[in-house]
């Protein structure tokens, strides 16, 4: 019997894989990929909670839909930023792009 906890564990694992991707990769595109994975983990949680706890309310699904829309916007802007950054630095390694340094 697959329970809610199964889904939550899966989501936790996916989240941490995404986090690891964000933290360890140097290429900014891969950082974005990790972010997308983390967002997906969040969506799994939303839908799982909707399925197992929700009554007829559909907040879980609606939030997931909106999260996907936001993720889409984020990916578009993020990748556009990357291209702009690449044109500027000829590089998308997050190690090199450190103008944020104080």
């Amino acid at each position: 019997m697959v329970t809610l906890t199964h889904y939550l564990v899966l989501a936790a694992v996916v989240f941490c894989i995404g986090l690891a991707g964000v933290l360890t990769r140097r290429n900014a595109i891969m950082v974005l990929v990790g972010l997308e994975m983390m967002l997906n983990a969040g969506n799994i949680n939303l839908v799982a909670f909707w399925r197992y706890l929700g009554s007829q309310a559909m907040s879980g699904q609606m939030f997931a839909i909106f999260a996907i829309a936001v993720a889409g916007a984020e990916a578009a802007v993020g990748l556009a930023l990357l291209i702009a950054v690449y044109r500027h630095f000829r590089n998308v390694s997050v190690e090199e792009i450190s103008s944020l340094k104080g």
Binding site: L19, V22, L23, V31, V94, E95, S98, S99, L100, K101, G102
Partner: peptide, 14 residues
């Protein structure tokens, strides 16, 4: 700590 690398900040945050 303040080395300007966003990944580094994220590491510390987590």
């Amino acid at each position: 700590i303040q080395n300007g690398l966003s990944q580094h900040y994220l590491k510390i945050t987590s």
